[in-house]
Design a protein around this nucleic acid. Structure first.
Length: 419
DNA sequence: TTTCGACCTCACGA
DNA sequence: ATCGTGAGGTCGA
């Protein structure tokens, strides 16, 4: 399939406002691929998108499938060439607008980080090495299936599964350097007979059934994607839709968020965590806080969960963690939470806090529950934080297949009891 | 309401 | 070398 040629274009931005190398690797999306020359590529929105970033700008290029030749008399060569040039130059090219939408570039990220840091010492301590992380505005259906794949799974395997889904069931957008690029499959495509069996052969395990069933529920019972898209935060709409007010933030999130979360739970393979991922990454409900094993670790280590009433990750504890984070960070709690989540990912371990023993003044938060309300108290911790270097091991970088020295931080912060 | 197993697969450590 | 474990959980009892 021939693709219209395209030029590289520039979208000026700083690495603190957007860092694609972190944003595209932090586990919110599973389809972007990085090549040896640091170019990220993915097929979406009817085109093959390529991205590169340097200190000044995001460089982007879109390759479109050649349009079907109309059954009309062909225009004279000169006119045809001019039309092709115009199309390639951007007359019908909304790539810039799409990128602004997809990367969610309107909010000032520096300000948001400052705001989160001001209300939470732990964020202030961890975030500086993880700037430029943005919550992508992904397609909700893609997010839904992607996160159904995520249960009991790791990012690299999830990516492989999603890749296989596109390869076998997604529409072919075109080829680049001999490689086919497929967009994400529709619900209808995943309703075809024997999908479950096929996905099991492809190594999806028990998720094969979840995907097949969820596709059928969405396509046949719910009437298709409009049902899913109607759950989108109206304040934070899909591409090409005008924003509308979304109501006020309650402890448990806005009403629209709670409704979306509830509706999603009716699907197969969708529990509270996956539903929250879809709300956050696909439906624009940024107060959504998906609590997975990492976040549960963080909640125990840095926010004093794991004791008393919240000694295990029950449904009640799950809600309490979300409520605390919303109280701490406000309407975009899920965004702030994603920064801390990323800071804890093994793939980014080389960036975690210094391994040498450091004397620092730390602030901790004390969580209390009073009735249904969560109370946060912060206080200064003066002790030296002991950091022990446990092991140094080579670990292959998922994308570059190069060995990097990774040392795991094995700190147990002393659990000082409040006097 | 909370608590268990079971569930696919795969890579890693003991 | 085999076995256990954990990886961004969910389901059913």
């Amino acid at each position: 399939m021939a693709l219209r040629a395209a030029e590289w274009c520039k979208l000026p931005t700083s690495l603190t406002e957007l860092c694609i190398n972190t944003t595209l690797r932090c586990g919110q999306s599973f389809r972007w691929r990085k090549s040896e020359d640091d170019t990220w590529t993915c097929a979406m929105h009817g085109r093959i998108l390529s991205l590169r970033q340097d200190a000044e700008a995001l460089h982007y290029r879109a390759l479109f499938p050649e349009k079907q030749k109309p059954a009309l008399p062909t225009p004279p060569p000169s006119t045809a060439a001019a039309a092709a040039a115009a199309a390639a130059a951007g007359d019908d090219d909304d790539t810039l607008a799409f990128l602004n939408h997809y990367f969610n570039l309107a909010p000032n990220l520096g300000q948001l980080y400052e705001q989160w840091a001001a209300s939470d010492a732990n964020f202030k301590r961890r975030a500086p090495k993880f700037t430029g992380i943005r919550i992508l505005r992904q397609d909700a259906w893609e997010a839904l299936i992607g996160f159904i794949c995520s249960s009991n799974n790791n990012i690299s395997r999830i990516s492989g599964m999603v890749h296989n889904l596109c390869l076998h069931y997604g529409p072919l957008i075109g080829h680049m350097d001999g490689t086919p690029y497929h967009d994400f499959p529709t619900p209808e495509a995943l309703c075809k007979p024997r999908v479950e069996e096929h996905l099991r052969e492809l190594g999806f395990g028990y998720r094969a059934k979840y995907i097949a069933k969820t596709a059928r529920i969405v396509a046949e019972e719910k009437g298709g994607l409009p049902w899913l898209h109607a759950l989108t935060n109206p304040e934070y709409p899909q591409f090409g839709v005008e924003p509308a007010p979304a109501g006020e933030l309650l402890q448990g999130g806005r009403e629209g968020y709670r409704r979306a979360h509830d509706e999603l739970l009716a699907l197969q393979g969708v529990g509270p965590k996956v539903a929250d991922c879809v709300c956050l990454f696909g439906l624009g409900w940024l107060e959504s806080v998906p609590v997975d094993t990492h976040v549960w670790q963080i909640a125990q280590r840095d926010y004093r969960f794991g004791k008393g009433k919240h000694s295990s990750l029950t449904a009640a504890t799950y809600v309490a963690i979300g409520n605390l984070f919303r109280k701490l960070w406000g309407k975009e709690a899920g965004w702030a939470h994603s920064v801390l989540f990323t800071a804890d990912l093994k793939a980014f371990a080389e960036r975690t806090v210094a391994k040498t023993e450091v004397k620092e003044e730390e602030e901790e938060v004390e969580i209390k529950t009073e009735g249904d309300d969560v109370v946060v108290e912060t206080f200064i911790k003066q002790e030296i934080t002991k950091r022990k270097r446990v092991k140094t091991e080579p670990e292959p970088d998922e994308n570059q297949h190069q060995l990097v020295q990774v040392s795991e931080r094995a700190t147990r912060r002393s659990k000082r009891q409040r006097a």
